[in-house]
């Protein structure tokens, strides 16, 4: 049965968290006990999630591989399939194919400091890496997180942001776009690149991981340049439309590189070698 790569695993939705308006996190447990026990993945990988009757959509695995027994995904209701997923309730069944794609080279990063820069709904792919690093905390030096969203309401994982804020072994800076603040807001106000410049993190022996909308990435890279980050020490994940997830359907390639197989994780040095087609 498992040798048909298009046949998803069935998974029960154990828990649904409303993260922000239109944004939900699903905790999934595989129905097949053997699959639940043997399923493994690494930070950065993605999957194809099924709402049977509507189709599949592609998201990263947002939970950390250090947390066993389940996987989580966080998605915004945007199209046909994500809207169908959003209508599902706890205890109901959906499908998952994966894990697909390459991974963040977390072993290579051991002994280095990590700087995470995320915008909006792009925190989920990074949350996997952040928890992975925090769960193996002694392997890394300083961990800094800069997370920005359009408004206070749009910040996802609010309970976890609070947890990171309270921990002493991680430094979290949150920001919202000008006009997105509330009277109670104690974080920064400003766009991510500007706040990053003010934050002025050290680049020495540090890996920067950047995930966000294209416009945020476009303006963040020059700031990282100014801070002294070399292209090979900056990582991001690309998201392109996919159907198969395994290099056959023909959609996600950027030049000769396939986001589903060669990515989704790319260093900035690798990105610079790709044609501008993403």
């Amino acid at each position: 049965m498992a040798d048909n790569i298009y046949l998803p695993y069935l998974a029960t939705i154990e828990k649904i968290t409303q993260e922000a308006p239109g944004v939900k996190t699903f905790r999934l447990k595989f129905k097949d006990e053997e699959v639940a026990r043997s399923f493994e993945f690494k930070a950065g990988q993605f999957g194809e999630y099924s709402a049977f009757g509507e189709g599949e959509c592609t998201f990263c695995i947002a939970s950390s591989p250090t947390r066993k027994g389940y996987i989580e995904c966080t998605f915004r209701e945007a199209g046909k399939v994500t809207s169908a997923l959003a209508r599902l309730e706890e205890g109901q069944t959906m499908g998952f194919r994966g894990p697909y794609g390459n991974t963040f080279p977390m072993d290579e990063w051991k002994g280095k400091s990590l700087l995470f820069i995320a915008g909006g709904i792009a925190l989920p792919p990074m949350r996997c890496v952040i928890w992975n690093a925090l769960d193996t905390r002694s392997s890394y030096k300083d961990i800094n997180i800069l997370y920005g969203a359009k408004s206070v309401a749009d910040l996802v994982y609010k309970h976890e942001l609070k947890e990171w804020e309270e921990r002493t072994d991680v430094n979290l800076l949150t920001t919202v776009d000008p006009g997105g603040e509330t009277p109670e807001w104690k974080g920064q106000v400003g766009f991510v690149p500007a706040v990053l410049e003010k934050m002025n993190p050290a680049s020495e022996n540090t890996i920067a991981v950047v995930c966000g909308p294209p416009v945020m990435i476009k303006f963040t890279f020059p700031v990282l340049d100014k801070l002294g980050f070399k292209p090979e020490n900056i990582y991001t994940t690309l998201e392109n439309r996919m159907k198969c997830g395994v290099g056959k359907c023909g959609r996600c390639n950027v030049g000769s590189k396939y986001v589903c197989k060669d990515g989704p994780v790319f260093s900035r040095a690798q990105l610079e070698a790709l044609p501008a087609e993403y």
Binding site: F52, G53, E54, G55, E56, K243, K248, C249
Partner: peptide, 25 residues
């Protein structure tokens, strides 16, 4: 040419087939 789409051929009452069909870049 082998590019394809994956689609649902829903038949009602929550049943159907997952199909693939030819697509074009």
């Amino acid at each position: 040419c082998a590019c394809f789409d994956i689609q649902e051929n829903a038949k009602g009452n929550g049943a159907g087939d997952r199909i693939r069909c030819w697509d074009s870049c």
